[in-house]
């Protein structure tokens, strides 16, 4: 299944809680303020890198760019545009939003 996260990890625990509920085959897509969870050198970087070992993690590039974060994204996080977002939603049998 696909999990979307739209809150900053330094404001809410949505990302942390999401990463705790991943199973084999799950992917994570960071959108809106959730893209702050895709950054290097933050207090949640380690947790995200750990999850990356077992699950693909995507970030919505327009949201990264809007926030001026394009040079800070963790290596291995895949950047997608809006049509990539749609593809991910279609590829997975269900989608869960972490708000």
């Amino acid at each position: 299944m696909l999990h979307t996260v739209n809150k900053s990890p330094t404001e809410r625990n949505a990302l942390e809680s999401c990463l705790k509920h991943l199973k084999k085959g799950c992917a994570v897509l960071l959108i809106e303020d959730g893209v702050y969870g895709a950054l290097k050198g933050t207090s949640s970087t380690k947790m995200v890198e750990q999850a990356l070992k077992n699950h693909p993690i995507y970030a919505l590039y327009p949201d990264i760019e809007a926030r001026g974060m394009q040079d800070r994204v963790i290596d291995g996080i895949k950047l997608v545009d809006y049509s990539g977002f749609v593809d991910l939603a279609v590829e997975h049998p269900s989608v869960q939003a972490w708000l």
């Binding site: 299944m1 705790k20 509920h21 991943l22 199973k23 799950c26 269900s94 989608v95 869960q96 939003a97 972490w98 708000l99």
Partner: peptide, 18 residues
């Protein structure tokens, strides 16, 4: 537990988040 909750989520057709 978290593991069972994860399985529960995985077994659904539709998930509505609030």
């Amino acid at each position: 537990g978290t593991q069972e909750m994860t399985d529960l989520m995985q077994s659904q057709d539709v998930i509505l988040s609030f």
